[in-house]
Design a protein around this nucleic acid. Structure first.
Length: 429
RNA sequence: GCGCCGGUGGUAGAGCGGUCAAUUACAACAGACUGUAAAUCUGUCGCCCUAUGGGCUCCGUAGGUUCAAAUCCUACCCGGCGCA
């Protein structure tokens, strides 16, 4: 993997560049669609590539390990070959699942509201990560995480080494270290503990990765499973944690940044209104010459602030999840306003007002969905529970975010970033 | 014409003397969703109000029994089935 910085913004952490992988180039900054189970939900790979315009996709180690199993993916010739995605691929390590499965069902939230530290949803209460509530499907300890399968309830154990081994089998181009993502509800002491655990695990991941990589080079010739399908050793990204605490974030970034990783992921819980700040602390500490991925963040405003503060790649489930529940991003200048007169940046197609609205989702959007289908038609598909609705909205939402970041990239390259950023922040405010 | 069964809120369909403004599902209306246990979850869903409380109307229609009826009785109207 090779990372090149093409343009930098003066007095800013923002930069544009490219990540070269064995399966192609990612022009950064870039939004990477999530395909947890080796599929970007409801969207075929040729559409992700050609209609959405994405350079890469990100899948999940935990889910693919459970189903179909990493050995099957290895046998298929690696993740990309298996899912018919010829471009670059990422896998998340499964560390996040220790958090999302380690909280009571439906309650794990990594984004906290800055103004009240209560979880945002009224009917949600935070549960400490190490609590042993019956309904929890993951328990973490200093050596690793014990998971109950979300498929059949069977028990499985992930350690940093195991995660790396599985990720080598799945064979994405870029893989992540096994980390601990603490909930926003965790106190400072716990966050500190999570940072330390993540540091120790990062070293273990790196060691395992280097051993596997050395072995892989030796047997590389034998791993040619079919024409064009080499299981090349992946690049490994370390993960920075630290919640919403500046000292912990900087410390974690220094620790992880000093290790021999190919790039870095920034994970963990954030304050809703403070993502940009936390990212800045971290990117100020990380080595400049390696790529930085902001894990699981992708609301438009967060993308703008992320790029401004030095992020190269993002992934997020929001565009596809929102799409499946009937919501579409729209650019605020479209002119729709909510009850309080605030510019809308999202519409819910299931609202009665769209039943006979024959305009496109976003008239200024160039995506296939907006060029060919109306709000009323998509609203009808959702009401009729036709699955094409989810597909059309997913294509639009993904296109929306991918191209939002592409516009930021172009602005950086053309030396007009501050201007573009200012305009966008104003639009989305 | 006779006999039996049934008529419940937008729909289907529970309830069969008080705890019923009425279970549940669907529909409808709104909200949530940030490294996907998510094609999911939450709330509202007779009307009105000085609204974690109060008032009014309500289970085909009209009477009746009862302290109390969607629930029991009578008549009528409507639907289904059976016999003529």
């Amino acid at each position: 993997m090779k990372f090149t910085i093409q343009a930098k913004v003066a007095n800013s952490l923002a930069r544009a560049g490219s990540i070269e992988t064995p399966h192609g180039i990612i022009e950064t900054p870039a939004f990477i669609p999530v395909g947890t189970k080796a599929t970007v939900k409801s969207v075929a790979t040729d559409v992700v590539r050609e209609k959405v315009g994405a350079d890469a996709v990100l899948a999940n180690t935990y889910h693919l390990y459970l189903q179909p199993g990493d050995e099957i993916i290895k046998k298929a010739g690696g993740l990309g070959k298996f899912m018919n995605w010829s471009g670059p691929t990422f896998t998340d390590s499964g560390g996040f699942q220790a958090f999302s499965l380690g909280t009571v069902k439906g309650r794990g939230k990594k984004i906290a509201d800055k103004n009240n530290q209560e979880p945002r949803d009224n009917n949600q209460k935070e549960t400490p990560v190490e609590s042993d509530t019956e309904s929890m499907l993951a328990k973490i300890d200093d050596d690793g995480v014990t998971f109950k399968s979300i498929i059949d309830g069977s028990e499985h154990r992930f350690t940093p080494e195991r995660s790396i081994q599985i990720q080598h089998n799945i064979a994405a181009d870029i893989i992540f270290a096994f980390d601990e993502c603490a909930t926003p509800g965790a106190d400072y002491e716990y966050q500190k503990k999570a940072v330390e655990r993540t540091r120790v695990w990062a070293e273990r991941c790196l060691k395992e990765h280097k051993e596997l990589r050395a072995k892989r080079y030796e047997v590389r010739e034998a791993e040619v499973l079919s024409p064009g399908s080499y299981l090349l050793p992946p690049a490994l990204f370390g993960i920075v944690q630290g919640g919403r605490h500046e000292d912990l974030r900087r410390k974690s970034a220094q620790d992880i940044g000093a290790m021999d990783f190919d790039g870095f992921g920034i994970g963990g819980s954030f304050d809703k209104d403070d993502i940009g700040t936390a990212v800045k602390w971290v990117c100020e500490e990380l080595p400049e010459d390696k790529p930085r991925h902001l894990l699981g963040i992708g609301e438009p405003i967060d993308l703008i602030l992320g790029v401004a503060n030095g992020i190269d790649t993002f992934d997020c489930v929001a565009p596809t999840r929102l799409a499946r529940t009937g919501a579409a991003y729209i650019y605020p200048t479209v002119g729709l306003v909510d009850a309080e007169g605030k510019k809308k940046s999202r519409i819910n197609l299931l609202n009665a007002e769209y039943k006979d609205d024959f305009s496109p989702l976003d008239p200024d959007c160039g995506c296939d969905t907006c060029k060919n289908y109306s709000r009323a038609y998509i609203a009808h598909l959702f009401r009729a529970k036709e699955m094409l609705g989810a597909t059309l909205l997913s294509v639009h939402n993904l296109h929306f975010l991918v191209h939002l970041v592409k516009r930021l990239r172009t602005a950086i390259v053309e030396g007009k970033f501050e201007e573009a950023k200012g305009k966008m922040l104003e639009d989305f405010s």
